[in-house]
C-alpha cells in the first residue's frame, strides 16, 4: 500500500523530544505529527511515552494565543483521540471545562473516538441549558459550547441516556446542529424518522448543507437514502464517499443482499 509520507527524516524519538522542548511552535507541530504518524511508527514503549507526554501537554500554560486560547492543548487532545489510548480519558474530561472553546471541542471529539462510557456524563453536562444555552458567542464564530461535537460523540458512545437531552437540538437554529442531532439520534434509536430528516435536507437550497447531509447519511449507513444520494445535486466525489459508507455498513452487518447489486451499479456509474 502506498501512502503519502512526511519527510522521512522525522522520527518518533525526535518528535517526542520536540513535544517536550521549549519552542512552542515546535511543540505544537510535534503534537500534531505524533497524532498522525505515531500509531504506525512507534514501538509499544514509545507509544506509552507519547501518550504520557500528550497528557502532560493538555495542562500546558506556555502556549497562549492573543485571545487566551491554548493551541498546544487543542492539538494534544486531537492527537490523543487518534491514538486510541483510554489512559487519556480523565485528562480529556478535565479539558471539557477549559476556558478555550476549541480545547473543549477537541476534547469532546477525542472522547467520542476513545469510546469510553465514563465520558458520557461529563459530555452531557456541556449540553446543560439546552437549545437556549447554545447561542453564538458575540463576536466569535462559535457557540457557547461545542454542541455539535458533543452530540456526535454521545452518538458514537451509544449514550441512550442522552436521547431526551439531544432531542431538542433537532430544532436548533443552525442546520449543522440539527443534522448532528438527527445523526446521533439515529445511531441511538435506529428510528427512520431521524434518517428521513437528513433525507429532506438533501433538497435544501444551500449546496454546503446538501453536502453535509449527504455525508452524514453515508456515515450513518442509512440504506433508504441510497437512491436520493445518487440523485442529489452534489458532486460525484461526495456521492462516492456517502454510498461507500452505506454499502460498507450493509455488507458488514447483513452481507450481500438483493439491494447491494443496484448500489454497486450506482457506485460504478459515479467513477
Amino acid at each position: 500500500m502506498t501512502t503519502v509520507s512526511e519527510p522521512v527524516q522525522l522520527t518518533v524519538p525526535q518528535m517526542l523530544a520536540q513535544l517536550q522542548g521549549t519552542d512552542t511552535s515546535c511543540r505544537y507541530y510535534a503534537a500534531w505529527w505524533l497524532g498522525k504518524f505515531g500509531l504506525e511508527t512507534a514501538t509499544a514503549a514509545e507509544r506509552q511515552a507519547i501518550v504520557s507526554a500528550l497528557i502532560m501537554a493538555l495542562g500546558d500554560e506556555e502556549d497562549r494565543t492573543e485571545l487566551g486560547g491554548y493551541p498546544l492543548r487543542r492539538n494534544a487532545a486531537r492527537a490523543l483521540g487518534k491514538l486510541g489510548d483510554r489512559q487519556a480519558v480523565p485528562a480529556l474530561i478535565e479539558c471539557l471545562r477549559c476556558e478555550d472553546f476549541y480545547v473543549r471541542e477537541a476534547a469532546a471529539i477525542a472522547l467520542g473516538q476513545l469510546g469510553d462510557p465514563h465520558a458520557i456524563a461529563p459530555l452531557q453536562a456541556l449540553l446543560e441549558g439546552g437549545v437556549a444555552m447554545a447561542r453564538l458567542v458575540p463576536g466569535r464564530p462559535h457557540l457557547v459550547q461545542p454542541v455539535e461535537a458533543v452530540i456526535e460523540s454521545l452518538g458514537h458512545l451509544g449514550a441512550t441516556e442522552a436521547i431526551a437531552l439531544i432531542e431538542p437540538f433537532l430544532a436548533h437554529e443552525m442546520p449543522r446542529v440539527q443534522f448532528a442531532a438527527a445523526r446521533a439520534l439515529f445511531q441511538l434509536t435506529g428510528a427512520a424518522e431521524y434518517g428521513d430528516r437528513l433525507l429532506v435536507a438533501l433538497n435544501s437550497e444551500d449546496v454546503q448543507l446538501r453536502r453535509t447531509a449527504l455525508l452524514d447519511l453515508g456515515a450513518m449507513g442509512y440504506l433508504p437514502a441510497a437512491e436520493a444520494i445518487l440523485q442529489a445535486g452534489v458532486e460525484a466525489s461526495f456521492k462516492l464517499i456517502a454510498l461507500h459508507g452505506i454499502l460498507s455498513k450493509q455488507l458488514q452487518q447483513v452481507g450481500p443482499a438483493a439491494q447491494t447489486l443496484s448500489l454497486f451499479q450506482g457506485l460504478d456509474q459515479l467513477l
Partner: peptide
C-alpha cells in the same frame, strides 16, 4: 483488499 466494498465488488 482492506476495503469490504472493494472486496465485494470483485467477488461480484
Amino acid at each position: 483488499d482492506p476495503d469490504i466494498v472493494v472486496r465485494s465488488r470483485c467477488q461480484l
